[in-house]
């Protein structure tokens, strides 16, 4: 079976196409990736390919444009599936990586974040922005590890777009989804779209421990930055873009959860989300 991936950008259409692809990969196939492909979307594509390989499906890339091929070589995505690597002399790609959930997965991710977001190859950002960005990645990654109940790893990839001054990063898992987690922990059935809204509103499935703050905290950061936060979980799609929220339900679900942040790297905000805080008035 031959499939054409089409344009994959970090937007509703791009995520929808990937959910459709997941459904179409029920049999062996050849994929044409000759159109535009935002490299951070490798996190979702890698997750789907990994699952299909486990199911003994044969997936071959039949055609790939030279631009896309170069990026997917630089970010090591193709090497995961038998292709070559290529050095990244401009430092705009951020390596595609599958983090195994056995062993100390947090330590693997910590090293990865330090490698890519401390100094080497980074777009210029204020220290305040870089700190908030890194902290957001840790929040998203550790939430994926805790809430997805996956044994199949966590998939991550980023990309810097220098002309637009945008940094994209996506973290995906093949777990039970936000709706699945709410049902497992709280025995409440919500649609995939409502489950995302539930999580984003500051609720938590952790009993006996305060929580639910992480996604609210990231939303506030993204609003200040005028960036974007996109959550895909099962058939649910939720996007915050320039302060405006939009939602959608896909006809085909993604087999897990993927959280994407897009930040404006030129932003100079101080990122103190509350007004001035007195250290003697914390407790």
């Amino acid at each position: 079976m031959a499939l054409t991936l089409g344009n994959i950008k970090t937007n509703l259409n791009g995520f929808q196409r990937i959910t459709e692809l997941n459904n179409q990969l029920a049999e062996d196939c050849e994929i044409d990736i000759s159109s535009w492909f935002d490299a951070n979307m490798c996190a979702l594509l890698g997750a789907i390919f990994y699952r299909k390989k486990k199911e003994n499906k044969v997936i071959r890339i039949s055609d790939i444009s030279s631009d896309v091929k170069e990026i997917l070589q630089k970010n090591h995505f193709l090497s995961y599936f038998g292709g070559e690597e290529r050095p990244d002399s401009y430092g705009t790609t951020i390596e595609y990586r599958q983090f195994e959930t056995v062993g100390n997965v947090y330590e693997q991710f910590r090293k990865y974040v330090i490698t890519y977001f401390r100094s080497k190859g980074l777009p210029k950002m204020t220290l305040a922005l870089l700190k908030r960005f890194r902290e957001s990645l840790f929040e998203i990654f550790l939430n994926a590890v805790e809430h997805s109940y996956t044994q199949e790893g966590i998939f991550a990839c980023g990309q810097f777009f220098p002309r637009r001054q945008r940094l994209h990063f996506t973290i995906a898992d093949l777990g039970i989804g936000i709706d699945g987690n709410i049902y497992r922990q709280l025995q409440k059935r919500l649609s995939a779209e409502d489950a995302i809204r539930w999580a984003i509103s500051g609720k938590t499935t952790r009993r006996g421990r305060s929580g639910g703050l992480g996604l609210q905290w990231i939303q506030d950061f993204i609003k200040l930055n005028q960036g974007r936060l996109i959550i895909v979980s099962g058939a649910g799609y939720w996007e915050l873009s320039k302060g405006v929220v939009s939602t959608h339900t896909f006809s085909e679900p993604f087999p897990g959860t993927a959280v994407t942040i897009v930040i404006d790297t030129a932003d100079k905000n101080s990122y103190c989300l509350s007004s001035e805080i007195d250290s003697s008035d914390i407790f």
């Binding site: 305040a128 499935t205 009993r207």
Partner: peptide
Amino acid sequence: PQDLDTLKRSVDRAKDYFKDPERFHSA
């Protein structure tokens, strides 16, 4: 100041949570 901001939000959330945990689990 950034860390103080994160701490203040976490403490305020904890105070609210432990006053009425079910509110944070409810649908």
